[in-house]
Each structure stands twice: as structure tokens, then as C-alpha cells.
Computed example of a mutant assay.
Amino acid sequence: MPFDSLCKKKIFRDVPNLENIKIDKHANEIFSSVFTGMGGRYTRLRILCEIVGSSLNTLDIAKKLRIDYKTVQYNLEILENHNLVVRKGSGYGDVFTPSEIVKSNLPTLYEVIRKVEAKLEAAEKNYIE
């Protein structure tokens, strides 16, 4: 699996024993719908990876990922609606952090992404940069 990426180093570095993962069914449903079933799943994962290390606002995320501000805003709304990120603030400078469901279910998220990446690998496209 091509998980030697910056995202793996950031988001999955604290996941113990990545080969014997216990799946949380509820978290698996949420992660599967957000990161496998919708267009923009790659962008949402990149956003999540960026905010794991530090809380960032929409503009900072857009600059770091080099994607359109409105695209980041839209995908943050999806992540927020699925309770995967937490907004701190109430205006333009709002910062986002991963929610507790993400922090406490990283092994499940890893497994969902690994399954998707295995399918995409056949098409020679990596899910995570």
C-alpha cells in the first residue's frame, strides 16, 4: 500500500499495529460514506490530514493545499455535518480541528482508506498524496 505519505505520517502515526485493526461499525459507516461514497472524498481526506497537526482556518487550508477557497469551504461543511471536524469560532477566522470521533477511531479510518486505495491502486491512482 502506498501509505508512505505525509498524511500517513500525520494522521496515522499513533495508530498501533496497523495490521490487526478492530473496526468500530458506527465510525466505519460514517467514514465510508464521507471518504468513499461521495465526490470530493480525496479533498476531504487532504483537509482532514492538514488539520490533524494544527487547527487551521479555511483560508490557511486552501493555501496549504493549493485548492480553491470555496472548495475547502464546501468540503469543511460536509465534514462538519458528519461530525468529523469541530469549528471553533463564529466567523471568517473560524478554525477547524478533528472531532473526537476521528481522534478515537483512527484505526477504523485507516482501514476504510486502505480498502479504497487498494481499489484505486489498480487504476494507478493513490488516494493519499
Rank of each mutant, 00 (worst) to 15 (best):
M1D: 03
P2M: 10
P2T: 12
F3V: 10
F3I: 11
K9H: 03
K9C: 06
K10L: 14
K10E: 12
R13L: 07
D14A: 04
D14F: 07
V15G: 07
P16R: 13
N17K: 04
E19H: 05
E19Y: 06
N20H: 15
N20E: 15
I21E: 00
K22Q: 11
I23W: 07
D24T: 08
D24Y: 02
D24H: 05
K25H: 14
H26C: 10
H26F: 15
A27G: 05
A27K: 00
A27N: 01
N28G: 04
F31A: 00
F31P: 08
F31M: 01
S32A: 02
S32T: 12
S33L: 00
V34H: 01
T36W: 01
T36M: 01
G37I: 06
G39Q: 13
G39W: 14
R41D: 00
R41G: 00
Y42H: 08
Y42A: 08
T43E: 05
R44I: 10
L45M: 13
L45T: 05
L45G: 00
L45D: 00
I47H: 05
L48R: 00
E50K: 14
E50P: 12
E50Y: 10
I51Q: 01
I51K: 01
V52A: 14
V52W: 11
G53V: 14
S54R: 07
N57H: 08
N57V: 04
N57W: 11
N57T: 04
T58D: 02
D60V: 02
I61K: 04
I61W: 12
K63Q: 12
K64Q: 00
I67H: 11
Q73E: 11
Q73L: 14
Q73G: 03
N75K: 03
L76Y: 05
E77L: 15
E77W: 15
I78W: 02
L79G: 07
E80D: 12
H82S: 04
N83F: 03
N83S: 08
L84W: 03
V86Q: 14
V86S: 13
R87D: 11
G89M: 03
G89Q: 04
S90V: 13
Y92E: 12
V95W: 08
P98K: 00
S99D: 08
E100G: 02
N105T: 06
L106T: 07
P107M: 05
L109S: 05
Y110R: 09
E111W: 01
E111S: 14
E111C: 08
V112I: 11
V112P: 11
I113Y: 00
R114F: 06
R114M: 12
K115A: 11
V116N: 11
V116S: 13
V116R: 15
V116Y: 07
E117S: 13
E117C: 08
E117P: 06
A118F: 12
A118R: 15
A118W: 10
K119L: 09
K119D: 08
K119A: 10
L120S: 06
L120N: 03
E124T: 09
Y127R: 10
Y127P: 06
